[in-house]
């Protein structure tokens, strides 16, 4: 059935709440009639009641921390951190508490919490509502970071996230919510740590994640018209990272462009470029290129925001330069 990412996430929450009564949803506005800013939780309170779909005050440390504490004691909470930018308010509860429970308690703890959060630029929401920040999260041992790029993956990965016994941060790109594709009916799970080869190709590998996977696919379609066969890899999960799919593709094509909406330093693009140099050096026929956002905040004005985010033209140019090396 064809549906948007927004609908796929909503359907998955319905399915998992119906399947397991330990699953609760909490966050700001989640129990409102509108189902939050983008209607993601629409219909949940009517079906499952406000004791399982819980509106909270605008206090992110309490939301995330309580979700962690509830997970530690037997529930399977899905907390909503409305925008990932609000990580600035509640990072301690993720970094020092939830991520470390299992390790610092010597394996006694089980913390099956999912933190759903909106990421990304492209909708004019400005410096404090548009960041990516997933490299910051992927750098923390003890949590998993998931970045779906289409509705089918959103369903498969969110189902897996809710059933996973470790803490998972589920990153939803706000510019992709209305993107539609075919989504499998019924129960659908996708394993973590397995990237998707979105386009098969032989001349060059383009790696993307979340929205940049979509951009990479669009670039590959343009390149195909110019006779370039680009392979596109959508990482799906950043932690765990599917290194072997990247390295196998690189071994086949010899060339690598990574497209990442992060700021450049310590980005996922840097991580993957490092991987290619360290473990794929012999297979490289050209330097690795990183297409990222610049080392600036996200501007509110749409004309500068359009400059900020990676786009198809930049990817096509980078691919052509890499092929010409």
């Amino acid at each position: 059935m064809k549906m948007s990412i927004r609908e796929a996430i909503n359907q998955t929450l319905h399915q998992e709440m119906a399947r397991d009564e330990r699953v609760i949803v909490l966050g700001e506005d989640v129990a409102s009639d509108q189902g939050g800013v983008y209607g993601i939780t629409e219909g949940l309170p009517a079906k499952f009641g406000v004791h399982r779909v819980i509106d909270t005050p605008i206090t992110e440390s309490a939301i995330v921390g309580a979700a962690g504490g509830a997970a530690l004691t037997g529930l399977r909470p899905v907390a909503e951190l409305m925008f990932v930018d609000f990580l600035g308010v509640c990072l301690d509860q993720i970094l020092n508490q939830i991520a470390k429970f299992r390790y610092m308690f010597g394996g006694q703890a089980r913390t099956p919490v999912v933190i759903r959060t909106m990421i990304g630029a492209g909708t004019g929401t400005g410096p404090q509502h548009s960041q990516i920040l997933y490299p910051l999260l992927a750098a923390i041992p003890g949590i998993k970071v998931v970045t779906p790029a289409n509705a089918a993956d959103a369903k498969g990965l969110l189902t897996t996230a809710i059933r996973d016994d470790d803490p998972v941060i589920f990153c939803e790109h706000k510019a992709l919510y209305m993107d539609e594709c075919e989504v499998p009916e019924g129960e659908y799970l996708l394993p973590f740590g397995q990237a998707r080869t979105a386009v098969q190709g032989s001349d060059i590998t383009i790696v993307g994640m979340s929205r940049t996977a979509v951009i990479a696919e669009q670039a590959a379609a343009q390149l195909a018209q110019k006779g370039v066969s680009a392979e596109v890899i959508d990482l799906r999960t950043l932690s765990p990272l599917d290194e072997s799919t990247i390295l196998e593709s690189l071994a086949k094509t010899g060339r690598l462009v990574v497209v990442d909406e992060s700021n450049p330093y310590c980005s996922m693009a840097s991580e993957i470029a490092g991987l290619a140099v360290e473990q794929g050096f012999d297979t490289l026929d050209a330097p690795v290129k990183r297409i990222t956002s610049p080392h600036t905040p996200v501007p509110a004005t749409p004309c500068l925001e359009a400059e900020y985010v990676p786009n198809v033209a930049r990817v096509v140019t980078a691919v052509e330069e890499t092929l010409a090396y």
């Binding site: 309580a66 962690g68 504490g69 530690l72 004691t73 529930l75």
Partner: peptide, 10 residues
């Protein structure tokens, strides 16, 4: 305290 609040929520 946020963690204890979560346990109380459980």
């Amino acid at each position: 305290p946020p963690i204890a609040a979560g346990a109380a929520l459980t």
